[in-house]
Simulated scan of single mutants.
Amino acid sequence: SRKSRKYNSYKGTIGKVKNNKINRRFKTSIPHQKITTDTSEFKIYTTDKNGKLVIKKAYLDPFLDMFNGEVLSFSISDRPNFKSISDALNEAINITKDCPYRRTFHSDQGWAYQMNKYNKTLKKNKIFQSMSRKGTCLDNSPMENFFGIMKQEMYYRKTYKSFNELEKAITEYIYYYNNKRIKEKLNWRSPVKYRFEYESKVT
């Protein structure tokens, strides 16, 4: 079925497992302070030269602001790889460096987030690292919710036949999600509009 079991990047303890600093305190009234990430897997249905069905995969790595649910950065790749995650991480670090408080970046215990390179990048930027407890998806529910809504709205009823087609659809969806899709808990604003209104009050 399309709702294949969730992609699991857990490979055991291969590096450093960090404490769960977020501890399900997802709410924050400060933009760019609490950021969360995860990887989600998508399938692409193509055919080989003999017309036989080939299922390929793609992986999305977004970094999401818990303040307003905005996707700050993301990368899409055809296999789980550190460079893809690292590119999106560096972009998210750059975008959030205007935060006046110490930032926290949260994730599960996936292999990439345990890597020394990942820890070091956060440390160098004076960012706290937080990790969900093993196998506890509720510890990262803002990210789970985003993937759930996204797949419901742009993926489950559609078949993507190439990586480029899927990449374009994901990119367009994230733009729509950030800029157009309103949420009740943001006073019926889109994530970006909600942040703009907050910033105009503060400055």
Rank of each mutant, 00 (worst) to 15 (best):
T36M: 11
I35A: 01
P191T: 08
N125I: 07
Y156S: 00
R195N: 01
L138P: 03
M150Y: 07
N94S: 14
N164A: 09
V54S: 10
Y177D: 05
F105A: 02
R103I: 15
E197L: 15
K57S: 11
F67R: 11
F67P: 11
I93F: 13
T121H: 03
I95F: 01
Y156A: 08
D108C: 05
C99S: 04
I14P: 05
F196Q: 12
Y176H: 13
I22S: 05
T171F: 07
V192W: 11
K201F: 08
Y160N: 06
Y175M: 08
Y160G: 09
F26Q: 12
R195Q: 02
I55D: 03
L53I: 15
F163A: 03
S190D: 01
S1W: 06
S130W: 06
F128T: 14
S40A: 04
M154D: 09
Y59W: 00
I22T: 01
K16P: 00
R157V: 04
F82N: 10
D108M: 01
M131S: 07
R2P: 05
W111G: 11
Y173A: 00
T37M: 10
T13E: 09
I127S: 07
M115V: 03
I149F: 08
I170G: 08
S75N: 15
Y113S: 01
K21W: 03
Q152Y: 12
K126Y: 05
M115W: 10
P191Q: 08
Y45Q: 15
I44Q: 00
E199K: 05
K158S: 02
M150L: 15
E167H: 07
D108V: 00
I85L: 06
K16R: 12
R5L: 13
K168N: 13
G110R: 02
Y59V: 06
